[in-house]
Each structure stands twice: as structure tokens, then as C-alpha cells.
Computed example of a mutant assay.
Amino acid sequence: MAATPSMSPHQQLDAIILAGGEGRRVGGRDKGLLDWQGKPLIAWVIECIAPQVKQVYISANRNIEAYAAFGYAVHTDQSNDFRGPLAGIAACAAHCSSDWVLVVPCDCPALPNELAEKLLATAVSESLEASYAVDEARAHFLCAVFQKQALEGLKTRLQGDDLSVKGWLKTLRCKPTAFAGMKDAFLNLNTLESKRR
């Protein structure tokens, strides 16, 4: 059954935190476990996201025990060749039980408390398969909510050459959700330089 606006977000959403990247912009280090203001980046993301959803799943391809120590199920990519964020989403989506799935990266430690609610409201009210966040500066394609049913097509998508999240979103019924005045909430610490700020 599709989600309805009368249900609170945490009753109808699971979340996938993507921490399975190669960390090329941080010298090959495991980005989700890098320290930021006294805690691993992923710890900040979990604190933001867990209260907004029913269940959290972590996509990771190394340091599995370290990620599992945060208390949530960890799933690795289903193929050995690195296929990017879509592979991580697909690996976790198979375990999600809610009708909707929130996807976020592990390197955005200050995500909005109403991220899930606003994205879901857009998707439900406009009968979409997905909605992603935008602020005044840019679009955030990896801060998005998806109908779980739409994720089933990822297995086929991963067999092709276009593995960009933006390209995949173009194949779905999808519109952005505006987060006006919240650019800092989507602070993306994807380089060692940005972590030092």
C-alpha cells in the first residue's frame, strides 16, 4: 500500500546511508569513519536521520564491523567491481520493508530534521516515484526519497554503462523539493580540505 500523508514519516520510511565509496577525494580513507568535531561523520548522519525513519540500513564495503557497531544492519555491494552509489542503494533496498526509502550520503553531518517529511510530502502529493533535495546553490541527488517499488529497476540499471544517480532519476517520475535558506544543512564533507574548515 502506498504511503498516505496522514501517516508520520517514520512509520512509512526506511533509510539507506551510503558509506560504500572508495574515498578517492580523501586519499582512499573510509569517509564515513573520518572524525568531524569529535565523532565519525556517519554518527552525525545517523543522529539526523534515525528519528525520521522506521529503520536504518548502512551501505559499506569495508570496515564492516566498525559500521555494524553503530547498531544498524550493514550490507555490501552485490558485485565485486565498484559500481558506485546505485550499487549501494540496490544492496540495501532488498532488505527495506517500507513503501518509501530515504537515501542519504555518509558525509553530510548537518542534514535537516524535516528532510524525510518534506521529501515525502512532495512525492506523495504529486504521485511521484522520487524526490530529491535542492537548495539555492545546487541539487542534492543523493538526498532523496524513493518509492521502494522504483528501486527494483536498479538491478537492470547496474548492468548498463550509465551509473549516475542524476541519469537514473531522469528515468523516474521525479521532481525536486526546495529547502530554501538551508544550504549549510547540506554541507558535504567529501574532501580532506572541507573537513578542516
Rank of each mutant, 00 (worst) to 15 (best):
A3L: 03
S6H: 15
H10R: 11
Q12C: 06
D14V: 04
D14F: 01
I16N: 09
L18R: 12
L18D: 06
G20Q: 02
G20E: 12
G21T: 05
E22Q: 07
G23W: 04
G23F: 02
G23M: 06
R24D: 12
V26K: 11
G27N: 13
R29E: 13
G32E: 01
L33P: 01
L34M: 06
L34F: 01
I42E: 00
E47N: 15
V56D: 06
Y57H: 06
I58Q: 10
N61E: 00
N61K: 01
I64E: 02
I64A: 11
E65Q: 10
A68Y: 12
F70S: 04
G71S: 07
V74C: 03
T76W: 02
T76E: 06
T76L: 03
D77Y: 08
S79N: 05
D81C: 07
D81M: 03
D81G: 08
G84C: 04
G84D: 07
A87S: 08
I89A: 08
A90Q: 07
S98F: 09
V103A: 03
V103G: 07
P109F: 09
L111P: 07
L111T: 11
N113H: 14
E114K: 15
K118W: 05
L120M: 04
A121H: 13
T122K: 10
V124K: 05
V124Y: 06
E126K: 12
S127Y: 13
S127V: 14
E129W: 08
A130M: 01
A133M: 05
V134G: 09
V134D: 02
E136G: 08
E136Q: 07
F141T: 07
F141Q: 07
V145I: 13
V145T: 12
F146S: 11
Q147I: 10
Q147W: 00
Q149Y: 03
L151S: 03
L151F: 10
R157W: 13
Q159R: 04
Q159V: 13
L163P: 12
V165H: 00
K166W: 11
K170D: 10
L172R: 12
C174V: 06
K175H: 12
P176Q: 10
A178F: 01
A178R: 06
F179L: 11
A180L: 14
A180I: 15
G181M: 12
G181Q: 09
F186W: 14
L187I: 15
N188L: 15
N190M: 14
N190G: 15
N190F: 14
L192T: 12
S194Q: 11
K195E: 15
R197N: 11
